[in-house]
């Protein structure tokens, strides 16, 4: 089977979730990757390690305009005869995959958490992570948008052949005026480690103990809804049913009670650590490891313990 995988190469380096998408595609068939812009030949050839035979790159335009990218991927799908097209369900994938579904009249499965089952259905997260659904696609062509951090990238092959091509992407109708990428912050949706805090921290002036721990760990920071609503932390850190849904390997929650709406956004995490003064806090029921204690003491202590661990490993 011919599989096409879209790669966002607009950043400084190709993100891990792109390697995840190639690995996923490789398990389904022969992979061609497609991208645009100015990523180096070496970085693109690297996709071969994860299973791409070939990388098609359109050097004529940069950026992540969804109309242009839809045309690019459609052109590549036609050229390769791909019957399955894989995206990472990140912010670019969420904008492009639905457009492509209409353009190719191909059923879209967004938020896939695993490979297709024997009956051909594909598991996805539904009800904000409170359940899984199995989706059947009724068209011959399929588009699968893979939830980040659902499988680990696997190195299986060698370098891919990189080929320049014309994706007929047309012009963008959206002008980019400004791009702000806060320095040194790890983007939350793709982070493998997350340190999060809630109202138990009492005020924005106390967040140093949270960001210190995150820095030591190399983790992203997150928060509960009231914390973002009151402006203690920026909106994009709000996780939960009405914020971002994340599924890191490790989620450390300090001073968060664990309301059902909060859990909905984090219950896909592989391991959850809860730090709370109240041993009755509902979050402990969803936790793997719990610390009944004061975040103001426990977070700095944990930070020191991690530093010690890092120094000796």
């Amino acid at each position: 089977m011919s599989v096409l995988v879209y790669i966002d190469s607009s950043g400084d380096k190709i993100a891990k979730n792109a390697y995840e998408a190639v690995t996923y595609g490789k398990k389904l068939g022969d992979v061609t990757a497609v991208t645009n812009g100015k990523a180096s030949e070496g970085d693109l050839a690297e996709l071969g390690k994860y299973g791409a035979d070939k990388v098609l790159v359109d050097r004529s335009f940069e950026g992540i305009d969804d109309q242009q990218l839809t045309k690019l991927v459609a052109t590549a799908a036609e050229k390769t005869g791909a019957t399955t097209i894989v995206f990472s369900n990140d912010l670019v994938g969420k904008a492009v995959a639905p457009r492509l579904s209409v353009r190719l009249n191909a059923g879209l499965v967004s938020g896939a958490t695993d490979l297709p089952k024997e009956d051909g259905t594909i598991p996805v997260n539904v009800f904000s992570g409170k359940a899984f659904g199995h989706v059947k696609v009724s068209t011959d062509k399929k588009i699968i948008a893979l939830l980040p951090n659902s499988l680990q990238p696997e190195e299986t092959g060698s370098e891919a052949a990189v080929e320049e091509f014309d994706g007929n992407a047309g012009d963008s109708r959206v002008e980019v005026l400004d791009t702000k990428l806060p320095e040194g912050e790890i983007p939350l949706p793709e982070a493998e480690l997350v340190v999060s805090a809630g109202r138990g921290l009492k005020g924005p002036e106390n967040w140093g103990i949270v960001t210190d721990l995150a820095e030591t760990l190399g983790a992203a920071t997150a928060c509960s809804r009231p914390v973002a609503d009151t402006g203690w932390r920026p909106h994009h850190e709000h996780v939960g049913q009405t914020g971002v849904a994340i599924r890191p390997n490790l989620y450390i929650a300090a001073g968060i009670s664990g309301a059902i709406q909060h859990l909905a956004g984090v219950n896909g995490s592989k391991v959850i650590v809860v730090i709370n003064t109240d041993e009755e806090a509902p979050f402990f029921k969803a936790a793997d490891y719990g610390v009944v204690g004061d975040a103001f003491e426990v977070l700095p202590r944990l930070n020191e313990a991690i530093k010690k661990f890092k120094a000796s490993n």
Partner: peptide, 17 residues
């Protein structure tokens, strides 16, 4: 173009340590 054919609840968490 798509349909949900089956649903499943996540496996219950074991007790917190």
């Amino acid at each position: 173009l798509t349909s949900f054919v089956k649903y499943q609840l996540p496996a219950p968490k074991s007790a917190v340590k």
